[in-house]
Simulated scan of single mutants.
Amino acid sequence: MDKQKIVTACKKNLNEKLDTAQDDMRRLREAAGRNADDNQSETYESNQQEMLNEMRDMQDHFDFLEESAALFNRLDFQSPSDEVKPGALVVTDKMTFLVGISGDFDYDGKTIKGISASAPIYEAMKDKKAGDEAEVNGNVFKIKEVA
């Protein structure tokens, strides 16, 4: 698998998620402003609280995505590695993992599973090499390639 193309696809996916979250927050703020202008409704306070809660949730999600992007940009995906560590692409008999960012994304018709360095699967695979096995919750993953 071409690690650099996968990293580029992951970065693109993360940026798209950030853009979408930013657009969603902007639309919600605009809707809240329109709702504030039309405060004749009996349910105005209830709707306002619901919007505030939704805005807070969206902001938390956006903050998480920004932190993920910052971490992603600090990782070294360029250096080749023969063992599982942050920045590694790990191909197993069951799925492919990119270590350093949480969340799944598609690349070339395949799902790549992003995992953080605090994920149990990472702990099980850490420092292992091609040919090794890692077990998590009764699932055994045979490592075929580390890049």
Score class of each variant (00 low, 15 high):
27 R>H: 13
119 A>C: 08
83 E>P: 04
77 F>W: 09
27 R>Y: 03
119 A>Y: 03
52 L>A: 15
48 Q>C: 07
40 Q>W: 08
143 I>K: 06
125 M>E: 01
121 I>D: 00
12 K>W: 12
13 N>Q: 11
53 N>E: 10
74 R>T: 15
19 D>I: 15
62 F>M: 12
94 K>T: 05
56 R>L: 11
1 M>V: 09
52 L>T: 06
12 K>F: 09
112 I>N: 03
124 A>Q: 08
133 E>K: 14
131 G>D: 07
28 L>W: 00
45 E>W: 08
98 L>R: 01
145 E>R: 13
120 P>I: 10
4 Q>N: 13
94 K>C: 01
43 T>L: 13
79 S>L: 05
100 G>H: 01
34 R>E: 10
32 A>C: 04
81 S>A: 09
136 V>Q: 04
128 K>A: 04
4 Q>P: 04
26 R>E: 14
17 K>Y: 09
114 G>F: 01
49 Q>M: 13
29 R>E: 12
55 M>Y: 12
98 L>K: 01
91 V>M: 03
80 P>H: 09
81 S>K: 10
84 V>Y: 05
106 D>Y: 06
120 P>V: 06
110 K>P: 00
3 K>M: 13
66 E>N: 12
125 M>N: 02
115 I>Y: 09
56 R>W: 04
78 Q>C: 05
143 I>V: 01
40 Q>K: 12
66 E>D: 03
10 C>S: 14
142 K>E: 07
109 G>Q: 00
17 K>E: 11
75 L>Y: 05
91 V>H: 00
33 G>S: 10
20 T>S: 14
143 I>A: 02
71 L>Y: 08
70 A>N: 12
131 G>F: 02
127 D>G: 11
19 D>R: 15
98 L>I: 05
75 L>K: 09
142 K>W: 03
36 A>W: 01
31 A>D: 07
9 A>K: 14
89 L>F: 06
106 D>E: 15
123 E>W: 11
125 M>V: 08
54 E>M: 11
96 T>K: 00
22 Q>V: 14
111 T>N: 12
6 I>S: 09
53 N>M: 07
110 K>N: 06
140 V>F: 10
134 A>H: 05
94 K>Q: 11
131 G>C: 06
47 N>R: 15
46 S>N: 11
48 Q>I: 08
47 N>L: 11
49 Q>W: 10
33 G>Q: 13
109 G>Y: 08
99 V>H: 07
41 S>F: 12
69 A>P: 03
1 M>P: 08
53 N>G: 12
98 L>M: 09
54 E>G: 02
35 N>E: 09
104 D>K: 12
117 A>Q: 11
144 K>E: 14
38 D>V: 08
49 Q>T: 10
130 A>I: 01
11 K>V: 00
